[in-house]
Amino acid sequence: MLDSLARLGRVGLAILASLGRAHLLLVGILRGLPSMLVRPRLLLAQIYGVGVLSLLIIVVSGLFVGMVLGLQGYYVLSQFGAAESLGVMVAASLVRELGPVVTALLFAGRAGSALTAEIGLMKATEQLSGLEMMAVDPVKRVLTPRFFAGLISMPLLAALFSAIGVIGGWFVGVGLLGIDDGAFWGQMQNKIDFDEDLVNGVIKSLVFGLVVTWIALYEGYDATPTSAGVSRATTRTVVQSALAILGLDFILTALMFGG
């Protein structure tokens, strides 16, 4: 009994210590911002790795999610004789929820795991110690550009996902199922509010981008520098990111749309 309590306590303390290290790392990363701004090329290279290479999976998934929403939405809405509202349904679900959330999940799988593996392997192959011995701060030099690349890429990817999804829904609804084009766009414009829906969606995707990149970098930097350690860290990145995204999505939705 006491043993299990002690074990619980140890786990709790370990989690707290880990959280503390993660926050210290974030502070270190943010401190690197001025030196990164002097050399924007570093950031550029990372936006390529984090953003551009995630483009394909985001565009394809966005298209299919939009098309499925179009089909399912049409099926449900036509039962109430409200098929013209398909545009509203597709756009609202994408802009408010699916865009940021699904993009963040894909982003964690595509870019987050890659970041963790890269940083973890750099640690395992002594590249990070090597930088430190060359009097270059590995946090500022390696982690900061990756962090801001994630922060910048995520909202753009989410916007692309939503936009492509709306077009996919439009293709199914208007192109295949014969809903009136004007009604599709007109109802959408009437109901989707710029401040309430779009801005909140962008805020969500920013928060998710921050959290996913942060988790990925921390797990890589904190990984045990062995093959098994890096693979464990990569798994943890994906699992923790997914949980964080869904949990935060609930909280953010409650704050934004609940009140």
Binding site: I47, Y48, A91, L156, S162, A163, I192, V202
Partner: peptide, 22 residues
């Protein structure tokens, strides 16, 4: 490619703002 990516992202945001929202 980074330039193309950023441009696409902003076009998507613009599209959502002007075409999808009010």
């Amino acid at each position: 490619l980074v330039g193309v990516f950023m441009a696409l992202g902003f076009v998507a945001l613009f599209f959502l703002a002007m075409r999808v929202s009010n």
